[in-house]
C-alpha cells in the first residue's frame, strides 16, 4: 500500500511528499515545510535532535489526514517527519495537501501542522552551546491537565457519546 504518512531518518525531499498528492481533480497543492531555526528568543541552536514513537506517530499523522478529509472533503494529504540529528535550515517536517481549489489547501495544511504539534508523539531536543533540553509544549505554552492535551480530552468525550 502507498504510504502517505511516515517518519524517516533521511533528509526530506519536498518533491516526494508533493508527488503523493498529485491527482487530476486537484487544482491546488499547498505545501508546508518546518525547518530548523538557528535563533529562538535570542538563544543560538547548534542543532536539533528529534525522537518519535514511530508506529504511533505514523498512525497519528494518518489520523490528521483523515480529519482533513472529513473537514474539507475531497483532499489528499501526505506528511513526513524526520527524526535524528538535524542541522540548521534542514527540513524537519513536510506536509502536502491537494484540493480542487486553493483556499481549502491553505487552510488544511495549516491545520495539519497545528495538529502535529498537539497529538503526534514526536519530541525535539535543543542542543545549545551551553546545554541541552527536551522541549515540550508544556515548557513553551500550555500545560497538560489530567495528563492529556485539551483537544485529545475533547475527542475522547465525544467518542463516549457516540
Amino acid at each position: 500500500m502507498e504510504k502517505n504518512y511516515w517518519i524517516t531518518e533521511e533528509p526530506i525531499q519536498l518533491q516526494d511528499v508533493m508527488d503523493k498528492v498529485v491527482r487530476r481533480e486537484a487544482g491546488a497543492i499547498s505545501t508546508f515545510t518546518g525547518i530548523v531555526r538557528e535563533f529562538t528568543k535570542g538563544k543560538r541552536t547548534l542543532y536539533l535532535e528529534y525522537q518519535a514513537y514511530i508506529p504511533m506517530a505514523e498512525k497519528k499523522l494518518a489520523q490528521i489526514g483523515q480529519e482533513i478529509a472529513e473537514k474539507w472533503g475531497n483532499t489528499k494529504t501526505a506528511i513526513v517527519h524526520r527524526i535524528g540529528k538535524l542541522d540548521i535550515s534542514e527540513i524537519a517536517v513536510a506536509i502536502a495537501v491537494s484540493t480542487p481549489h486553493r483556499k481549502d489547501a491553505f487552510e488544511a495544511s495549516e491545520y495539519a501542522i497545528d495538529r502535529i504539534k498537539e497529538i503526534v508523539p514526536i519530541w525535539k531536543k535543543e542542543h545549545w552551546e551551553d546545554g541541552t533540553l527536551w522541549i515540550g509544549d508544556q515548557q513553551e505554552t500550555t500545560a497538560y491537565k489530567q495528563g492529556m492535551p485539551a483537544k485529545v480530552q475533547m475527542e475522547m468525550k465525544q467518542g463516549e457519546k457516540e
Partner: peptide
C-alpha cells in the same frame, strides 16, 4: 504502555 511527555514535533 507508552508515557508521552508533552510533544514538540514540527
Amino acid at each position: 504502555i507508552a508515557f508521552i511527555p508533552p510533544v514538540s514535533g514540527g
